[in-house]
Amino acid sequence: MSDDHGRTTATGRLVTGLTWALLLSGLWLWGRGVTDVPRGTDGPATGDVFALGRAADPAWLPRPAKPLAGAVPQRVDIPRLGVQAPVVARGLDARGAVDPPPYDQPGVVGWYGAGPEPGAAGAAVLVGHVDTETRPAVFYQLSTVKPGERIRVFRADGKVAEFTVDDVRVLPRDGFDARQAYGPREPGRAELRLITCGGSFDRASRSYTANVVVSAYLTGTAG
């Protein structure tokens, strides 16, 4: 191995490390800030705070499928919830936090476009609101999802990435652990994170107290 190749490899690792650190930083800010959803009344965000730590026994879950090449997501389906939502790419806002979909589009899901595409290796991140001031939003029932259930992502290449849920967590806003929420669970897998507000609505801070994080991994492909 030449010295030039060694320096190139080291530089690549450094860039990758810095990108990952910035990604976690931005998503941590989003995790702290996405709970600031306007709401007219107090009440639980999802009604299922006890989902914290709910994980499946891997013995009865299907084997992971080989990751796909990257392709932009267009729609996400959660069959049991009746969710069929368009997906749009989102970046970071002026504060460095992931910019969720606008409040006037409560049925739209945002994909963190600087991260992996759903179906590609790594943990792809999809975010959506739990409610608005007047009605439930796209991920209102997200915390009721259970391990073993299926999520489908329709992609621009015509393929449908089929994911199986393996973990559901409600992570408190205070002490939010971005790596636990967004980091890959197993190296080399194609994984998916669906994230919304959780816990209860705190009137004093006008924010929710937690985030719901559903983790899934690629188990099949259609199309």
Rank of each mutant, 00 (worst) to 15 (best):
P184L: 03
G128Q: 08
L18I: 14
T46H: 14
V37K: 07
A204G: 07
G220V: 06
L24D: 03
F176Y: 15
L142A: 07
G107R: 13
F201C: 02
L29C: 01
L194G: 05
D202S: 08
R135Y: 01
E117Q: 13
L194M: 11
V138H: 10
G188N: 11
A56R: 06
G91C: 11
A181C: 09
R39W: 01
R75L: 07
W60L: 05
G113N: 01
S25Q: 12
P44V: 07
G223P: 01
V127R: 06
T9R: 14
R75Y: 01
P106C: 05
V130A: 14
I78H: 04
V87L: 05
V160Q: 14
D42Y: 00
E191P: 07
V49Y: 08
Q105C: 03
L29G: 15
F201K: 07
L18A: 13
A178R: 10
D174L: 12
L218W: 04
G110D: 03
G223L: 05
D174E: 14
V109I: 13
G26E: 08
V109K: 12
S215D: 04
Q180L: 15
T19A: 15
V160F: 02
P38V: 11
V213G: 08
G40H: 08
G96E: 02
R75E: 08
A65K: 03
L18Q: 12
R63T: 10
V37S: 12
G199E: 03
Q141R: 15
Y208W: 14
L27E: 09
R95P: 00
V109L: 10
R7L: 13
D42I: 03
G96R: 05
G47M: 07
G47C: 06
G12I: 00
A71S: 15
R203Y: 02
P106R: 02
R203L: 11
Y140A: 15
P67D: 09
L92F: 10
T19D: 14
T11K: 10
G53N: 11
V165W: 06
R150V: 15
T46C: 12
L92V: 15
V15E: 10
V88A: 14
S200Y: 12
E149N: 06
V72E: 15
V153A: 09
A51M: 07
L218I: 04
T41F: 12
A10L: 08
P100H: 03
A69N: 08
R135M: 05
L192Q: 08
L194R: 07
D177C: 04
G91H: 11
V108Y: 07
R206V: 00
G40C: 02
V76L: 07
G6K: 14
G119V: 02
A190R: 03
G128A: 04
R203P: 01
V213A: 02
G107E: 14
A121T: 13
T35S: 10
P106Y: 01
M1S: 13
A89I: 00
E133Y: 05
D42R: 11
H129F: 00
L52W: 07
E149L: 11
V212T: 15
L23M: 10
F154W: 15
G43I: 06
I195P: 01
R179W: 13
R185G: 06
P44T: 14
H5G: 00
V213H: 04
K66F: 01
G26T: 09
P44G: 12
R63C: 00
A89H: 00
L92R: 15
S2R: 13
G175D: 10
G82V: 03
L126T: 09
A21V: 13
T196V: 05
P102Q: 04
D42L: 12
V109F: 04
G175N: 10
E186R: 15
